[in-house]
Amino acid sequence: KITVTFNGEEKARRYYKKMQKHNLKVEIRVENNQWVVHVE
């Protein structure tokens, strides 16, 4: 499981979509004013 933190929504969403293309289970959320993407 990987957790990647971004300081911008745009970058986070781009990464999220990229990971989805690989058929990975991805989850995006905001934690402590940071955009966090969890990849299983």
Rank of each mutant, 00 (worst) to 15 (best):
T3W: 06
E9P: 08
Q34A: 07
K11V: 12
R13K: 09
M19H: 03
Q34T: 09
K18H: 15
R29I: 10
V39D: 00
E10Y: 10
K25V: 09
E40P: 05
K11Y: 13
V4T: 04
K21A: 13
E27H: 07
Y15A: 02
H38I: 15
V4W: 05
A12V: 03
M19A: 06
Y16I: 06
I28N: 00
T3K: 09
V37T: 00
N23D: 06
K17F: 09
K25P: 04
V30L: 14
Q20T: 06
K1P: 10
I28K: 00
A12S: 02
E40A: 08
E9H: 06
L24S: 05
R29W: 12
N33K: 06
Q20F: 06
L24M: 10
K11M: 15
E40Y: 15
R13T: 06
N33R: 05
N33I: 03
V30M: 14
Y15L: 03
R29K: 11
N23I: 05
H38N: 09
E31M: 08
L24W: 09
K1V: 12
V4Q: 05
K17L: 14
G8Y: 12
Q34P: 00
R14E: 15
Y16G: 04
Q34I: 13
K18I: 12
Q34W: 07
K1T: 13
K1E: 07
H22R: 14
R13S: 03
T3C: 14
E9M: 12
Q34S: 07
V39W: 06
V36N: 02
V37Q: 00
K11N: 14
N32S: 05
R13D: 02
M19S: 03
N32P: 03
V26W: 02
V26P: 03
K25T: 08
Y15D: 00
N7F: 10
R13H: 05
K25D: 05
I2P: 02
Y16P: 01
Q20L: 15
G8K: 15
G8F: 11
T3V: 11
M19D: 01
V36P: 00
L24V: 11
T5K: 11
V36K: 04
H22Y: 13
V30T: 06
V4S: 03
K21I: 08
E40C: 12
V4R: 11
G8A: 15
E10Q: 10
V30S: 07
M19W: 05
K17T: 10
K11C: 15
F6V: 01
E31L: 11
E9F: 14
Y16Q: 05
E9C: 13
W35A: 01
M19I: 04
Y15E: 01
E9W: 13
A12G: 02
R14L: 12
V37W: 01
Y16D: 00
Y15R: 02
Q20S: 08
A12T: 02
Y15P: 01
R14Y: 08
R29L: 11
K11H: 14
E27Y: 10
T5R: 14
K17A: 12
N32W: 05
K25G: 05
V4E: 03
V36M: 05
I28T: 01
N33L: 05
K17Q: 13
V37S: 00
Q34R: 11
R29Q: 08
N23K: 09
A12W: 04
K18L: 14
Y15W: 07
V4D: 01
T3G: 03
F6T: 01
V4A: 06
V39C: 07
Y15V: 02
V36G: 01
G8D: 15
I28H: 00
F6I: 02
W35S: 00
V30R: 13
I2H: 11
N33E: 08
E27D: 07
E10R: 12
A12Y: 07
K21Q: 13
K21C: 12
H38D: 12
K18A: 14
K11P: 15
Y15T: 01
F6L: 02
L24R: 08
I28W: 02
T5N: 05
W35Y: 04
N32V: 05
E40K: 07
E10A: 14
H38K: 08
K25F: 07
A12Q: 02
K25Y: 09
K11T: 13
R29T: 13
K21F: 10
K25C: 11
R29N: 07
V26I: 05
